[in-house]
Amino acid sequence: MSERILDIKNLSVTFGGLHALRDLNFHVDEGEIVGVIGPNGAGKTTFFNMISGMVTPTSGDILFEGESLIGLDPNQVTQRGISRTFQNVRLFANMTIAENVMVAQHCRTKQGVWGSLFNTPAFRKEEREIREHAEKVLGFFGTRLIGYRLEQPASVLSYANRRRLEIARAMATSPRLLLLDEPVAGMNPKESAELTDLIGKLRSEWGFTIVMIEHDMNVVRDVSDRVVCLDHGETLAQGSFEEVSNDPEVIEAYLGRPLEKRDAS
């Protein structure tokens, strides 16, 4: 846990006078799991959008493995090794589950018109590998997404399975850094506990570094090495979960919500 994989320096973005993020400094070390918390509208998703290239920051710099990501298109960011999920699950609803994961390997594969037209050995090999990798990634979630489900459209999946499929899709791009936007939102306690386990395994078995936005403090506590709290586009506190959750400013921002929630569950 030494090398910095992601380093964010003085990042700001304004939307027509509104500061969505202000002077954010933040870093992620190789192999870390960082939880990002903060009340609604704190700028968490904007933060993800900016890392993944969907929003261009007004000022500041984002370094990934030492190289700046500013000005890159989202697909180039993904190519570099950052992949993400979306808060409001955005699957390719009419593509099959296998295809959803296969299409995510696009930037790691290279067969073009020629290969597909003449069905070259290289093309067949690549297709086979894409398929195998897809099944391997889906197999990570147990039996839920494989078998007969492979050929079903993603739209028939349950909410929890859609979230799982979205994570699988992000995994399939073979990233080094995985951005998870509220991975357990809408799941019941049993499912979110299970997913929390899987997030741990994503690091230990797949070697991903993970940044995760999450409202569920149980998940954040159980899995994060470090927690960052954002509010009004600024960093309120950084540190271990205990430190951050006991920070008076954070408690104020949340109006004591984390404690309540812990009691409730």
Partner: peptide, 14 residues
């Protein structure tokens, strides 16, 4: 995507 023109074009494609 709405972004038709990149504001800061560090990486221009063909």
């Amino acid at each position: 995507m709405t972004a038709a023109v990149k504001v800061k074009g560090a990486q221009r494609t063909g």
